[in-house]
Amino acid sequence: MKTKNYFFALLLLVISFNSLSQGVQQSFCRSVNIYINQFAYTRDSVLVSLGNSCVVTDVNLKIVNVTHTWDSDLRFYLHKGSTGAMLINYVGGSGDNFVNTNLDDSALIPIASGTAPFTGNFRPFQALAPFNGLGTDGYWRLTILDTTSGDFGTLNGWCVQLTYTCPTGGIQTVEIPNTYMLYQNYPNPFNPVTKIRYGLPKNGTVKLTIYDELGKEVAVLADGYREANTYEAVFDATNLPSGVYYYKLEADGFSDTKKMVIVK
């Protein structure tokens, strides 16, 4: 029986219980189309599910795209559980939009000194440092408050970028395939949460993207560096309608796509 393409190397690693894995940086993104109404809060969340009691060491927030006339009507907040920070506070005057706005505590230019559409790296109004030390897993929530009448907008995309470490110890099983693998999601059909496993034979940059039936990107479950291993991503489709969707894995020239179905 030929098993070459499906062979897995299983490594048993014994590490001291008080050790931490090397810091890893990963972006967790949402591609959405949420209307920003006047005198109202607009909210969206991304679910992080890394397991292994991983701990945050640094947080950045990226506003991929917010279209809005008169930027200074808006406040932006990030929350994880009971921890929160106001990151943007009435900036930009009558300018329009936020496009690829990276909020980073180490940036040289404060967001208040920028100009619309605020493309580039900026220091947030309040520091992101209070999120350091929190567990990675759970919902990270972006909130936009429009405080004035007369202007409207849309939240189109955003990412929370986490740098984190994971405690290791005891007997840890690492499942490394000898070729790239993308598995069928389970359960399928599903409502509203499913899991997607994928395997990487070597370290490198990986992207796992969800598309609707028309080919529009609706979510990014992984986008960053990964060590060789087998991973499981959690996809929460709470805000999506029933229908056929596709998920695509891209890594080092490899690409594979599979179909899944949301039934509500």
Rank of each mutant, 00 (worst) to 15 (best):
P201D: 03
I34M: 15
P189Y: 07
V64Q: 09
G153C: 01
N191P: 03
M86Q: 12
Y245I: 06
T67M: 09
V234M: 10
P130G: 01
R75H: 08
P192D: 11
V174T: 06
C166T: 11
G51C: 13
G138N: 13
L87C: 12
T3A: 08
L47K: 11
N89P: 10
G135D: 01
Y186R: 03
A237D: 00
L12W: 06
N97F: 07
N102Y: 11
I196P: 06
T209V: 14
P187N: 07
F39P: 05
F118G: 13
L214W: 02
W140C: 11
V261I: 13
D96E: 06
I171R: 04
I210D: 10
V193R: 11
I63M: 05
T179E: 07
D105K: 09
L155E: 08
N156F: 05
F122S: 13
R141I: 13
L200P: 01
L182P: 02
G199Y: 09
P124L: 13
R141L: 07
T147F: 02
L50Y: 05
A222F: 02
D223M: 00
A129E: 13
Y211R: 09
M260G: 03
G169N: 05
L10V: 12
E213N: 05
F28G: 08
L47F: 13
S106V: 03
T3R: 08
Y164I: 00
D146S: 09
V160M: 03
G135N: 15
V218K: 15
G253T: 04
S94K: 14
S53K: 12
A222W: 01
A116Y: 10
K216Y: 02
V160C: 01
I111K: 15
P241T: 02
T173C: 04
L221Q: 06
G170D: 07
L208I: 14
F8P: 04
G243C: 05
F39L: 15
L221W: 03
F17R: 12
V263R: 07
Y6A: 15
C29R: 10
H79N: 11
N97A: 04
R30I: 01
A222D: 11
S113K: 11
G84K: 10
Q184T: 00
Q38T: 07
S72M: 05
L10F: 09
I262C: 13
Q126S: 14
T83R: 02
I210G: 09
A219Y: 08
V244M: 02
Q25Y: 13
Y139N: 15
C29I: 04
N52E: 15
T3D: 06
D256W: 00
K207E: 09
P201W: 06
P192A: 03
L214K: 11
L249R: 00
A233S: 12
W140K: 04
N65T: 10
P241W: 02
G92C: 12
D71N: 15
V59D: 01
Y246A: 00
T238C: 07
G150H: 03
R43H: 08
A222T: 14
P110V: 09
R226S: 06
S255E: 04
A237W: 05
L221E: 04
F28S: 10
M86D: 12
G23V: 15
Y225E: 11
L155S: 04
D212C: 04
H79D: 10
R141S: 15
G120C: 12
